[in-house]
């Protein structure tokens, strides 16, 4: 380093960054690192993950069979209250079933339905939104009108009607909720696609001879996934509440299967003498939904294109 100063040609000096593992420099990983910097969002994400683990490993974790009734333990209070015992930490319901175990098993229902509905809805939404936004014309008109019509129905009443028509059952709940849920990702995808299709890199792909399908899947879709992921997590919370509402109304999961919504409904009659029957499943709903919402906020902050690029 004495005499010659390195001549930097256009390529030699990178204006951006030194050679790191380049793949981790992808926009997605950059955003995820930004998400991880947000402590509250990260903590919420961990809580959501814990719920998922709880749901998956329910048979291993749950201290009791969620459906085993024991009339001697009818409305037994939580462990720390008089008459409680630590084998049943959150107490028992009107049939003497362990509330903690039922909450653990209930997580399966909430998370399964939430995930299934969002997966189905997002898949349909992406397909319809991409088609409407990229192809335009009559495809766009048809899809957009359908979306408008579906949006005009009140969500819950719509779902109640469908459930009444189809009858109860897990897959029917998924259908009843996804039936309308897809319009949300569809609108997001359509809007983002409309913006992305005008980008010069899309024109470049067309100039290179790429066909419509390729442009939609390879050029546009990767660039619009971030907002879709963000919206999906927000909507997942919503779907979980809707499922709980349906179960609360007796139109969702049928007894004796444990579901947070139906557990809250079961406890209504004993709110005064046995508050824990409704309160703990209610808190479970609250915690999961709140965590999902905070995590999705964090995702949105990390992914929002206005803050970078």
């Amino acid at each position: 380093m004495t005499t010659a100063v390195p001549a930097s040609s256009a390529g030699a000096s990178s204006a951006a960054s030194p050679d790191r593992a380049a793949r981790t420099q992808s926009p997605f990983w950059r955003n995820m690192r930004k998400f991880a910097d947000n402590r509250l969002a990260l903590a919420s994400g961990v809580v959501v993950l814990l719920f998922v683990v709880m749901a998956v490993a329910a048979p291993l974790i749950a201290p009791h069979d969620p459906n085993a009734t024991d009339l001697f333990r009818r409305l037994q209070p939580p462990a720390w209250m008089a008459g409680g015992e630590w084998a049943y930490p959150l107490g028992c319901d009107a049939l003497g079933r362990d509330i903690l175990s039922r909450i653990i098993y209930g997580a399966r229902i909430s998370i399964f339905i939430g995930t299934a509905v969002i997966l189905v809805a997002t898949t349909i939404g992406i397909l319809a939104g991409l088609a409407a936004g990229y192809l335009r014309g009559w495809v766009d008109t048809a899809i957009s009108r359908l979306v408008d019509i579906l949006l005009a129905f009140p969500y819950l009443i719509f779902a109640i009607g469908l459930m009444a028509m189809m009858g109860p059952g897990l897959s029917n709940i998924v259908i009843a909720l996804a039936y309308k849920e897809w319009v949300i990702p569809c609108r997001v995808v359509r809007g983002e696609t409309l913006a992305a299709r005008e980008m010069e890199y899309v024109e470049a792909a067309r100039a290179l001879g790429a066909g419509r399908a390729r442009i939609m899947w390879r050029e546009i879709l990767p660039n619009i996934l971030s907002p879709v992921v963000v919206v999906s997590t927000i909507r997942m919370a919503n779907v979980i509440i809707l499922e709980a509402s349906l179960s609360f109304l007796g139109l969702g999961v049928q007894p004796p299967t444990a579901s947070w919504g139906s557990m809250v409904a079961d406890g209504r009659a004993f709110m005064l003498e046995a508050w824990w029957v409704s309160t703990f499943p209610g808190l479970a709903i609250l915690l999961l939904v709140l965590s999902l919402n905070v995590a999705s906020q964090g995702l949105r902050d990390a992914f929002d294109p206005k803050f970078h690029d």
Binding site: T3, V5, A7, S8, S9, A10
Partner: peptide, 29 residues
């Protein structure tokens, strides 16, 4: 002018044009 503008982070005290300058000398450090 060949090259790029340097990034303005932790720049050494040398002349800032040194990387692109056709007339640079060791003294420019």
């Amino acid at each position: 002018i060949q090259g790029q503008v340097p990034e303005l982070i932790d720049l050494p005290p040398e002349c800032r044009f040194i990387g692109r300058c056709p007339k640079r000398t060791p003294d420019c450090r």
